[in-house]
Design a protein around this nucleic acid. Sequence first.
DNA 1: AAGTCACTCAACCGCGTTGTA
DNA 2: CTACAACGCGGTTGAGTGACT
Length: 556
Amino acid sequence: MDHTKNERENGMFPKDQMLSPLIDDGDFEASTDGGVALKKGPWTAAEDAILIDYVKKHGEGNWNAVQKQSGLLRCGKSCRLRWANHLRPNLKKGAFTQEEEQLIIELHAKMGNKWARMAAHLPGRTDNEIKNYWNTRIKRRQRAGLPLYPPEVCVQALQESHHTSAVNDGAKGPHGILQNDSYEIPDVVFDNLKANQNVLPYFPKLPGISTSGMLIKDLGSSQYYSFMSPTIYCQKRLRGPTAFFPGYTGAVKSECPLFEHFEDGMLNKAAQSFGASFPIGTDPAAKNSQSFGVFQGSHSLPNGNLSASEPTLEAVKLELPSFQDPETDFGSWGTLSCSPPLLESVDAFIQSPPPSGGLESDSLSPHNSGLLDAIFHESKTLSSAKNHASDQSSNSTTPGDITEGSDFNICKTAWENCGEPRSPLVHSASSLFSESISASGSSPDEPSSGETFTESQKKYEPADNVLTPGIQKEAHIQLDNGCSDTLLASDWFEQGPLYDPDQTVMADTIATFLSDDLSSEYKNMAAGTSFSSPEWDLGSCAWNDMPFVCPMPKLP
DNA sequence: AAGTCACTCAACCGCGTTGTA
DNA sequence: CTACAACGCGGTTGAGTGACT
């Protein structure tokens, strides 16, 4: 490639391009003005020279005039892109330095896919360059099952999100972020989220909340699949809907206080709003094996109830990745939801950007906020599994029993503790930090995952084994010891203690972690009560009292 | 040696935003 | 206020290349 590029840049045009840099037999398309065919495809050195000369004389901008004044058969867009990415002075060439890579990671954790804004922090680098780098990195790390964000970046991003939310009360518009050079979490994302309020009936009921302060930055993400990659990888080996996230919630609840409460109310309602997998129906039997698979793999609205109706559809349509249209979203995915996810389907899902719903539904918003997005999606996934088991819960610990505090530092602890092998999804979440864990001494020589399974299984099997903080702490210690990055999540699915084809053990176990609030909510829902009904108000559903361990401003 | 796969990079496309007549 | 053009951004695609089987 370099060879080819150098040839071009040195004026050694391949074949016909030697004849005329302006009019060769490259790709041409009819111009919109005057019928002049504009060239497409790679730029030649001569074209570059013309463009450089033009910019020297006229300066940047007015790109459409380039073709008219210089005779360059390129559209303005193409000229601008060529100039910005290759010709403008002070462009850095070559691979990213370590410092740059680190900065990109940090910026992405804070900004998401805001390549242009990221580029502004990397002098000499272009948004395209950064974007390509990031996408490559994502693929690489997906394959390796590695986290995208180092733990320090994760914590830092969350902390800054917290600080930002404390200062800004959601009033800042999209441009506000541009007026500030800090790495604030852009409220534009939340604006977008608000725009989808019909999709999320629980958000509009919280007027005045600075959504920036929530861990939920938005509900859709194209990075989401990146974050979830370890999970999805393990899914590839699953054979049926019931195996999607068995026992996930329980494990996560115990190991990741971060998720405690966070997803319970609002996320389940989001799931319900989408008609996803949630056992809305009155048939309790339907909420077991089917619904697990349905939710996780489905974007469907099995009951045809979109909850938010037209705006939702519109949002979905607007945000759909190019490979997907709304019909496939609600159709094919729905079909998928009703049958065991074929491996091919899962593969395709992995290879492609997430459909409009991520695993559940990304129709909420496509805008990415990077790490926080990922965290939210992860937790949302957790919530679905949890709620499915909630109706089987007879004994449950209260949220306060498990959550130890609201200090934000707990986030890091929580994540670190997530690095346990029992749940592939916990692994997924914790995989964010696996790098540092590995680097900090975890080695393959440590206790095997099998041993850990045995131990942890004792903790989870009894449904009436209410987890006390003490037990939890003990579990944490064991899990920390058993933390193994070498354990594949998929292995966990097949060997893990919570995987039970009948789901009885699993459900009972998960039920242990459900709060009373949620249990009652679930009962109401099973009885046909819709949370999206006007009567329902998240505020009464312990939103305010929700002991978020994430940055969550207390409502006035 | 041939085929396949993954990676990198450049460029294009669609859409939203902004500015202006 | 509206329509239109220009611009900017993010997502996607395709070509070239090297590693691997």
